[in-house]
Design a protein around this nucleic acid. Structure first.
Lengths: 107, 107
DNA sequence: TTGACATGCAACCAAAAGGTTGCATATTGT
DNA sequence: ACAATATGCAACCTTTTGGTTGCATGTCAA
């Protein structure tokens, strides 16, 4: 789970996911064309995405094909976001209450 | 959006959000009790959470109260996760197809 | 078979991140 | 008034991160 959050923390890696979203199964060279950095840098980013299981690699001869795996994103939603979503209104009302109490103290 | 992903990338910061989830509106000192690091380190983490608008600060005298703001998490879901969720089955079938084509090449 | 293409490996570098220590400032309670 | 409490500011340090360069390896196509 930590690996997924870390992988998503970088703009270049999110861009890579977006490119795969538009066209799944691209080779390393193809993915490099979009990014303004060396192939080796892209390789490192893709390695992190792979370790987070956000991207799956399939070798085809000398070419390395990259496929999106949406499962970890789903898990982030299930174990993290939906939990907070359920308490969304409560959290906002807590904040409102806190603000008002502070206001009263000042007056 | 980048700030939110960066803020969520660290385990300590996710722990802070979890503590606020359990008990909203805690002071800095209270939040420090849970973490195994100095107050200054916790302050820095909370600053990042604040900049990402995941936490809102309310001053009450000399005490700094911290409140959860679930809105950015909701936005991550809306603009990021749900997008991939919609193409979840497609992505998996792309991968399956890729694997099979590779298998055929080998045989 | 040989040159071009696709990728890997490793050393290296600068900047950012995570954390500490020391001291300063503002608020509270007695 | 003053001591204790709650927090801020800034310099510093180490590790991680994002990126580069140079060279090696494996595969394809003429």
């Amino acid at each position: 789970m930590d690996a997924v959050f870390k992988a998503l923390a970088d703009e270049s890696r999110r861009a890579l996911l977006d490119h795969l979203f538009k066209s799944n199964g691209q080779t390393l060279s193809q993915l490099c064309e979009h990014l303004d950095m060396t192939r080796q840098a892209v390789t490192k980013h893709l390695l992190l995405l792979e370790q987070a299981k956000l991207v799956t690699i399939v070798w085809s001869g000398r070419e390395k094909l990259h496929y999106l795996n949406p499962v970890p994103l789903q898990e982030i939603y299930n174990r993290w976001i939906s939990k907070y979503e359920r308490h969304r209104l409560q959290a906002l009302s807590d904040l409102k209450k806190g603000l008002e109490q502070n206001k009263n103290k000042k007056e």
